[in-house]
Computed example of a mutant assay.
Amino acid sequence: MKIVKNLFLVLAMVFSLISCSDDDDNSSLEVNPSTLVLVHGAWQSAFVWDQVKTELEKQGNTVIAVELLGHGEDNTPVSDITFKGYVDQVKAVIVGLDTPVVLVGHSLGGAVITQTASEIPQQIEKLVYVAGFIPKNGKSVLDYSALDTESLLPTALEFSADGSTAAISNPEINIPEIFCQYGSDEDIDILVEKLKPEPVGALATPLDYKMDDYNAIAKKYYLFTKEDHAITYPFQQAMASEAGITNTFEITSGHSPFVSKPAELLQIFDTILTN
């Protein structure tokens, strides 16, 4: 009986150790939720992030999609819209949070997050570009877009009489061709329906930041959209290289993967958030 009793004690200890080991393994796989701030691009608004935002929130993350002035439901007069105003919007969101953030910018939003992150680098955990502009100090989005000679976007623009805004001509054709290849008919209809002329002044404003402040953010990522006709793949690669970003990913999509290929984009975000 004593031998049997001792055997039970040994087995109990073994099972206890195995249980503790399993708990440790599970805890090591747990991922702390992140706080993400998403910044859309030109001729779009915060709604384009809806699918991605919903799925990220289901994973326990906190996600804020910023609606830049004059976009979407915001009707700020064009005369009151500035690039600094965009940056101040994003900064206000981040400063109001009690944690470092993963700051994500698409297209024009790439320039916005570059300036924002350089002004408050201590509050940026990771910087993520989705086909985003990264103008150097002293250069604007328009300066950089002029360098992308293969882009189809310039030929699709119609400027207002006073030159203050730029609209997309023939949107039923140009939106799917330039902004959202692979998007469904429903996706395209929504993009066209919500399309508004873009304020030009903010696009023409040179960025003003110190490279040391920008480089203080150690974790930067660039997501290339390989079939992009708005900001071409080679030009995206050149900007990422110029900015010293070596953590890169690719999606075979047009300019708006959060609309046309959200599942693939989410897989990449999952990798970035756990990196």
Results as ranks from 00 to 15, higher is better:
residue 10 V to K: 12
residue 11 L to A: 15
residue 12 A to F: 14
residue 13 M to E: 11
residue 15 F to K: 06
residue 16 S to T: 15
residue 16 S to W: 09
residue 16 S to N: 12
residue 17 L to A: 15
residue 17 L to N: 10
residue 17 L to H: 08
residue 18 I to C: 11
residue 19 S to N: 12
residue 20 C to E: 10
residue 21 S to V: 13
residue 21 S to C: 12
residue 21 S to E: 11
residue 21 S to Y: 14
residue 21 S to H: 12
residue 24 D to M: 12
residue 26 N to S: 12
residue 26 N to G: 01
residue 27 S to N: 15
residue 28 S to G: 00
residue 28 S to L: 13
residue 29 L to N: 13
residue 29 L to C: 12
residue 29 L to I: 11
residue 33 P to R: 05
residue 33 P to F: 06
residue 33 P to S: 14
residue 34 S to C: 10
residue 35 T to L: 02
residue 36 L to M: 13
residue 37 V to W: 02
residue 37 V to P: 03
residue 39 V to Y: 01
residue 39 V to K: 02
residue 40 H to L: 02
residue 40 H to T: 04
residue 41 G to T: 08
residue 41 G to W: 05
residue 42 A to R: 01
residue 42 A to L: 02
residue 42 A to N: 06
residue 42 A to Q: 02
residue 43 W to Q: 04
residue 44 Q to E: 10
residue 44 Q to Y: 07
residue 45 S to M: 01
residue 45 S to L: 00
residue 45 S to I: 02
residue 47 F to T: 05
residue 47 F to M: 05
residue 48 V to T: 13
residue 48 V to N: 00
residue 50 D to S: 09
residue 51 Q to G: 00
residue 52 V to N: 02
residue 52 V to T: 13
residue 53 K to E: 00
residue 54 T to W: 00
residue 56 L to T: 06
residue 57 E to A: 11
residue 59 Q to T: 10
residue 61 N to P: 06
residue 61 N to Q: 05
residue 61 N to M: 01
residue 62 T to L: 07
residue 62 T to F: 03
residue 63 V to G: 01
residue 65 A to L: 03
residue 65 A to I: 01
residue 66 V to E: 07
residue 67 E to S: 10
residue 67 E to A: 05
residue 67 E to V: 03
residue 67 E to Y: 06
residue 68 L to D: 04
residue 69 L to G: 08
residue 69 L to Q: 15
residue 70 G to E: 01
residue 70 G to I: 06
residue 70 G to K: 02
residue 71 H to E: 06
residue 71 H to W: 04
residue 72 G to L: 05
residue 72 G to V: 05
residue 73 E to Q: 12
residue 74 D to F: 03
residue 75 N to I: 10
residue 76 T to F: 04
residue 76 T to H: 08
residue 78 V to F: 07
residue 79 S to I: 09
residue 80 D to M: 11
residue 82 T to A: 09
residue 82 T to W: 08
residue 83 F to G: 06
residue 85 G to T: 11
residue 87 V to F: 06
residue 88 D to G: 03
residue 88 D to W: 03
residue 89 Q to H: 11
residue 91 K to W: 01
residue 92 A to D: 15
residue 92 A to E: 15
residue 92 A to C: 03
residue 93 V to N: 07
residue 93 V to T: 14
residue 93 V to K: 12
residue 95 V to N: 14
residue 96 G to N: 12
residue 96 G to E: 08
residue 96 G to R: 08
residue 97 L to I: 13
residue 98 D to G: 11
residue 100 P to G: 08
residue 101 V to C: 07
residue 105 G to N: 09
residue 105 G to L: 07
residue 106 H to Q: 13
residue 107 S to I: 09
residue 109 G to S: 08
residue 110 G to W: 03
residue 111 A to E: 07
residue 114 T to R: 09
residue 116 T to E: 08
residue 118 S to N: 10
residue 118 S to M: 09
residue 119 E to T: 14
residue 119 E to D: 15
residue 119 E to H: 10
residue 120 I to N: 11
residue 121 P to A: 11
residue 122 Q to V: 10
residue 123 Q to E: 14
residue 124 I to R: 03
residue 125 E to G: 11
residue 126 K to L: 05
residue 126 K to I: 09
residue 126 K to F: 08
residue 128 V to K: 00
residue 129 Y to G: 05
residue 130 V to I: 15
residue 130 V to W: 01
residue 131 A to K: 01
residue 132 G to A: 09
residue 132 G to K: 01
residue 132 G to H: 07
